[in-house]
Amino acid sequence: MHPALPLLLLALSGAASTPGARQLNTQGFRLYQAGRYPEALERFQEASKASPDYALAHYNLAATLGVLRKQGKVCEYSAHRDVIVEHLTRAVALDARRLTRAREDADFEPIRDTLGWQKLLGRDPAREQDVPLLLRAVSWFGPGVGVYGTLQRLRFEPGGRATLRVKEVDAEGTPRERQVRGRYTVSGRQVDLRLEGRPPTKGTLTETGALTFPGWETFTDAPSECEA
């Protein structure tokens, strides 16, 4: 969101909104401008519930969650990447102009490396030709383990370089991260991954956007967070 924009401009909406929803959205934007993000979030949530097809309410809700995520308040306000993507995707589906604004909106920096954001840009794991780009554009996370969350994160970099970040927990319960570097090549949906100190492995990016390697857990674009 852009606090400097005139309030009247951001208050504009489609016919799907009701006066009550627009009022809630306006209240939320004023709270957002004042830096009172949790309260703004509540208003945007109420606005989107009052008018489920209100594109701007979904957009503002997603943007505010993005701010709270950048502030490290993920668990407190459920500012998960998939939730942000869900509301932004809904906003764009209702009003395609939201995507133009989202491209320049710093509030959405936390989701630029998600599959959902890439889909908004027109890239699709169902298209084989998009596989190499999606591998590089997305951060891939393994499943979480209780309070320690995701233990593995895989990144594919330009030039055929790959990095696996592994979180290891010592006997005292202290997590430490180490990096394993390597190389990769892509052929169709198949990913040939060669990491230092590990046997070569061949994985697949499925049409639904899951990255699988034999003997490994499935990687997705959503880290495990806020586990008890």
Rank of each mutant, 00 (worst) to 15 (best):
P214F: 03
E217P: 15
S224Y: 12
K73P: 04
Y184S: 01
F156S: 12
T201H: 05
A210E: 12
A137M: 12
L211P: 11
E207W: 05
I111C: 06
T100C: 05
P19S: 14
R97H: 12
K167W: 04
L135M: 07
D113L: 08
A162G: 05
V169K: 05
G215E: 06
A47H: 03
T218D: 00
L134F: 02
A34Y: 02
L164P: 01
P175Q: 06
V138H: 14
H2I: 08
A57E: 02
G116F: 01
H80G: 10
R30W: 09
D53W: 10
Q179D: 15
L7C: 04
L133C: 03
V83N: 14
F108R: 01
S187C: 10
R127K: 15
P158L: 04
L193V: 03
Y54V: 00
I84L: 09
L99P: 02
I111M: 08
P38W: 07
A171N: 09
S224M: 14
L61N: 02
L135P: 11
S139A: 14
D107V: 09
T204D: 04
L9P: 00
A210M: 10
S187G: 14
Q190P: 05
G197I: 00
A102E: 06
V166N: 09
L88Y: 07
Q179E: 15
R165F: 11
Q27W: 10
T26C: 06
Q23N: 03
G149E: 09
Y148A: 08
A228C: 13
T26Q: 08
W117A: 04
T204F: 00
L134A: 04
V131M: 08
E104K: 06
G188V: 11
T204C: 01
K167I: 11
R98I: 09
E104N: 12
T218M: 01
Q129K: 15
L68N: 02
A79E: 07
T185N: 11
A16W: 04
M1P: 08
K202Q: 07
Q129C: 15
L135G: 11
A50N: 07
E104L: 15
A34M: 01
A50G: 03
L68P: 07
S78K: 14
L68S: 02
P52Q: 12
Y77C: 06
A91P: 00
A63C: 09
R178Q: 04
L134T: 07
G215L: 07
G146P: 08
A57R: 06
P6R: 09
P214T: 02
A228F: 15
A15C: 12
Q152M: 11
Y59G: 01
E217F: 08
R165I: 10
L56T: 13
R103I: 09
